[in-house]
Design a protein around this nucleic acid. Structure first.
Lengths: 187, 187
DNA sequence: CCGTCATTTCAGAATTTTCTGAAATCTATG
DNA sequence: CATAGATTTCAGAAAATTCTGAAATGACGG
């Protein structure tokens, strides 16, 4: 591996982190490298930069493309494929969340739903179903919320985040206003 | 493994999902089992239920306790340790988020910050720093937001989720009101 | 279609992670 | 403080994953 020290640290950290998620070291490193690279890289560039085998890079790129985290980018007059990461970090966040949801949350939800359909054969199963139902309810709320806010333009999403817990003040204010209006109408 | 079918499916699913996160199969299964169990279980109960070795259970329980996802619960007149999961799913969510943040996000933030302190030695490093800075900014926003809303009582958090993207309407309304008031004062 | 360069596939090697059984340690009790 | 039950530790076995090199496949220009 022969990279500027700053890039190397970044790449190595992503490699380590990758393994804490389901992602393997090389895949993490490839992503990190493409992310900070000023121009698209081809597979051999990556081989040189990371000192891993050509085939390993090929598989890693395939996985990253399946996640929509890396895109092929054609370079004129060059037969080799080149790759980049999308550069809007907010969009990257959405992609990452979408993909994790698709792979991890959705299948879980569907298993839980299925289990909730079954008729419990014992007190123990009845209790299990009650617990599963709580979990299902929570996950469903979270995903509904996510699907809702993921559509917001970056601008508004950022505003929302910046507001943080203070939204609740806004909520209180709204309730107050609604209460006032109701009171006036009904009183 | 000899469990009611419903419980067995749930446990097996968690085992599989576990491996997609950083968590290993047995740990996932132990958690799932305790989660749906009507009463606290001791290590041997778990050995019987999951057909894994005693030592594996011991290590799994240790890991789950380190994550604060499983608690020891003493049963009177029984020398053996028993274990449960906290039962408020909202609290479980907070715990899970806290722990993942602590293990994955915080170390990353600190690496990124460190890299941003360095003086870039080339154009390439300068570009890398710009990219790292974008990522750092995003993660910092997200964690600040998280630290903010994690303190909300369940009630309010649920209300917030239920509102979803409609909060932005509220935001617009607020801006309007503020605008009106300003207008009146200044006009 | 042929030759060249690029990419993918895949069987097995290398590595890492997980799991086990035996031994060590810990803990309460008589 | 000896003993029996409970738990943990840990070295190595077993399993799973990652990685590689060689061969196959694909793609393009002539």
């Amino acid at each position: 591996m022969n990279l500027p020290p700053l890039v190397q640290s970044f790449v190595l950290h992503f490699g380590e982190m990758g393994s804490r998620w389901g992602i393997n070291r090389t895949v993490g490193q490839i992503y990190a490298l493409l992310y900070v690279s000023p121009q698209p890289l081809n597979a051999d560039d990556i081989v040189d930069a990371l000192s891993v085998s050509r085939s390993n890079v090929s598989m890693g790129l395939r996985e990253l493309q399946a996640w929509n985290l890396v895109l092929p980018r054609h370079i004129p007059d060059d037969r080799r494929d080149h790759f980049t990461t999308p550069d809007d970090v907010w969009q990257i966040l959405r992609t990452l969340a979408d993909e994790r949801k698709k792979r991890e949350v959705d299948p879980t939800l569907s298993v839980l739903r299925e289990l909730l359909m079954q008729k419990p054969g014992s007190e123990e199963e009845k209790h299990a179903q009650a617990r599963i139902s709580e979990m299902h309810g929570l996950i469903e709320r979270l995903t509904t919320w996510y699907e809702d806010v993921r559509r917001l333009e970056t601008e508004r999403l950022a505003a929302l985040l910046a507001l943080g817990a203070r939204v609740t003040k806004l909520l209180d204010a709204k309730d107050k206003v609604v209460g006032l209006v109701r009171g006036r109408k009904e009183g």
